[in-house]
Amino acid sequence: MTGRAPTLADVQSLFQAAVVDGSDDVLGLIPGNSRTSSDVLFGVYRHAYVARLVEVVQNAYPILAAHMGDARFKDMARAYVALYPSRHTNARWYASDVPDLLGRPEYAETPELREIALIERQLDLAFDAADGAVLDLAALGRHPPETWGGLVFGAHPSAAVLRLSTNAYEIWAALKNDTVAPKPARLADPHAVLIWRREGVATSRVLGAEEAMLWIEASRGKTFGGLAEMAAVFADAETAALRVAQYLQGWLVSGLLSEADVHELTATS
């Protein structure tokens, strides 16, 4: 801009670079006064910008904030703002990388933090997921019984499973319900937490080991017959098909499935 007056677009660009990226180029356009300098005057905007983004992070992870405590959470949020510049036009998605920050080595001694953040982020993703049909018992009943062995199921677009190595879900649930949360602990066996949107509300529950295995395989296209075979290996073979049918009924009632189609049976189904 040497030799000419800056345009409004120039000033806006310099202002944004100063606030977002820390550039000092705009300071030459800001006159100081008898009480303070231009960098102190502009510092008000820089501070306000960071404070607003910290507030965005806190609004996105209220349970994590409750678990960490105000001071510790805000220290983390300010570190996030410094490391993850805003690149979103919608502030709702600015904080989506918080679990990545909490997976860094400096948080290795508190793995529950990342997992609480994963739960909160996945609940938001479930709420915003694409709409999908909800399969019900009546629709499933249109398939003749002799074809059920070849049925494959499509999960609702909002459904996802988190594998948690700590008691993060118990901590999250307790704080959500305003009860005393357990102390953080690592689990001997990881939890599988299913998160999805049910009747417009993001919801969740812990899956037992067998159901988790079957849900994941069903989501990958395993047929009903194939699921029954896997259940027979997992536990009592005589009741395997019945157990799979019971899980299937629960998935239908919960709005977890969007479709069921008959695939031609093969040896690997």
Results as ranks from 00 to 15, higher is better:
Glu55Gln: 09
Ala126Thr: 04
Ala9Asp: 09
Thr7Lys: 06
Ala241Asp: 03
Leu207Lys: 00
Gly32Leu: 09
Asp128Trp: 15
Met76Phe: 12
Leu118Pro: 00
Leu14Ile: 02
Arg4Ser: 05
Val152Glu: 01
Val134Glu: 07
Asp70Glu: 12
Gln122Thr: 11
Leu140Asp: 01
Lys183Glu: 13
Asp70Ile: 10
Ala188Leu: 13
Val20Glu: 05
Asp136Ser: 02
Ser96Ala: 14
Val262Tyr: 14
Val81Asp: 03
Glu259Pro: 02
Leu27Trp: 08
Tyr61Ala: 01
Ser258Val: 04
Ser258Lys: 05
Ala126Asp: 03
Gly103Phe: 09
Ala9Gly: 06
Val206His: 06
Arg142Phe: 13
Asp10Pro: 03
Glu210Trp: 15
Leu83Gln: 13
Ala240Asp: 05
Arg114Glu: 14
Asp21Glu: 10
Glu146Leu: 08
Thr147Trp: 14
Ala174Arg: 04
Val253Trp: 09
Trp215Ser: 05
Glu238Lys: 14
Glu264Leu: 15
Leu227Thr: 05
Ser34Trp: 12
Ser37Pro: 02
Pro85Ala: 06
Thr179Leu: 09
Trp215Arg: 06
Gln122His: 12
Thr2Asp: 09
Asp25Gln: 05
Pro62Ser: 02
Ala231Ile: 10
Tyr107Met: 04
Pro62Gly: 02
Asn90Phe: 14
Pro190Gln: 05
Leu214Arg: 01
Phe15Gln: 05
Leu64Lys: 04
Val152Phe: 08
Glu109Ser: 11
Asp124Tyr: 11
Ala71Gly: 08
Asp97Glu: 13
Leu214Asn: 02
His67Cys: 10
Phe224Glu: 03
Arg142Ser: 04
Gln58Cys: 06
Val20Ser: 01
Thr166Ile: 04
Ala173His: 14
Arg4His: 09
Leu8Ser: 01
Arg163Lys: 11
Asn33Ser: 03
Glu170Arg: 13
Ala5Ser: 07
Gln246Val: 15
Val54Ala: 03
Leu248His: 06
Leu101Val: 01
Leu113Asp: 02
Trp148Gln: 00
Gly150Ile: 12
Arg52Lys: 09
Trp215Lys: 05
Ile195Val: 12
Ser254Val: 06
Asn90Leu: 12
Ala139Cys: 04
Glu115Lys: 06
Ala48Asn: 12
Ala202Thr: 10
Gly22Leu: 03
Tyr247Cys: 08
Thr266Glu: 12
Ala95Gln: 06
Ala91Asp: 02
Glu115Cys: 07
Arg197Thr: 06
Ala228Asn: 07
Gly149Asp: 08
Ser37Thr: 15
Ala82Thr: 09
